[in-house]
C-alpha cells in the first residue's frame, strides 16, 4: 500500500500540521512516511501545501506531480491541484470560499464543511482535525487510535489536555463528510 497525498490551502489553516499528524500516525502503525512542505516563495505569498506519503515500502520520491488524494482548502489550491489527482483518485474539499467547485468525473469527490463545523464547535483551530476526520472516513488508512498516539507524540505535554477536543473534531469530520 502506498498513499500519496497533497494537502493544500492557506497558511494558518493547519495544512502543515495536519500533514504532520498524518505522518506521525503512519509511524505509529509501523509504516514509512514522508512530509514535504512547499517552503519557498509560494509559502510566503500565503498559500501552504504539503505532500505526505504513507507506505508499506521504502518511499521513493518525496515530491510528486500526481496524487492518490488531494485535500483542498482554498480556490487557488483547487485551481492548482484538481488536475493532479490520479484517475480513480480522491479529491476532498471544504466548499468554504470555493467559487469553482471541482468538475472532474474520473475521480471521487467528497465535501467536508470543515470551516462551518469548526465554527459550530466554537473553535476554529480544530478546522484541520475535522478535515482530517473526513479524510480518515473516505480513506481508512490511518486508524484513529494511531492518530491519537501520533498527537501525543507530536504535541508538547502541556497541550495533551486538548487531545479529547481533537478527537471530537475528527469524529465530527468522519460523520459529516459527504460524496459530492
Amino acid at each position: 500500500m502506498t498513499e500519496e497525498i497533497i494537502i493544500a490551502g492557506f497558511g494558518g489553516q493547519g495544512v502543515l500540521s495536519m500533514g504532520k499528524i498524518l505522518a506521525y500516525s503512519g509511524i505509529m502503525q509501523d509504516q514509512e512516511v514522508s512530509w514535504m512542505p512547499a517552503y519557498g516563495p509560494e509559502m510566503r505569498g500565503g498559500t501552504a501545501n504539503v505532500t505526505v506519503i504513507i507506505s508499506d515500502e521504502r518511499i521513493s520520491s518525496p515530491t510528486l506531480t500526481a496524487y492518490d488524494t488531494a485535500i483542498i482548502l482554498n480556490q487557488q489550491s483547487m485551481d492548482k491541484f484538481e488536475h493532479s489527482v490520479k484517475p480513480g483518485g480522491v479529491l476532498l474539499y471544504d466548499p468554504n470560499g470555493i467559487i469553482h467547485p471541482p468538475t472532474r468525473t474520473d475521480i471521487t469527490i467528497y465535501k467536508i464543511e470543515g470551516a462551518k463545523l469548526a465554527a459550530e464547535m466554537g473553535n476554529t483551530k480544530i478546522f484541520n482535525m475535522i478535515v482530517l476526520g473526513g479524510y480518515m472516513k473516505v480513506k481508512p488508512i490511518v486508524k484513529l487510535e494511531n492518530v491519537i498516539k501520533g498527537l501525543k507524540k507530536s504535541l508538547p505535554e502541556r497541550y495533551h489536555k486538548l487531545i479529547p477536543l481533537n478527537e471530537d473534531a475528527i469524529t465530527m469530520g468522519m460523520k459529516n463528510v459527504i460524496e459530492n
Binding site: K20, G26, E32, V33, S34, W35, M36, P37, I59, P62
Partner: peptide
Amino acid sequence: DGLIGQMMEK
C-alpha cells in the same frame, strides 16, 4: 539540499 533538509521522515 533544501529538499532533504526541509522534509520530514521517520
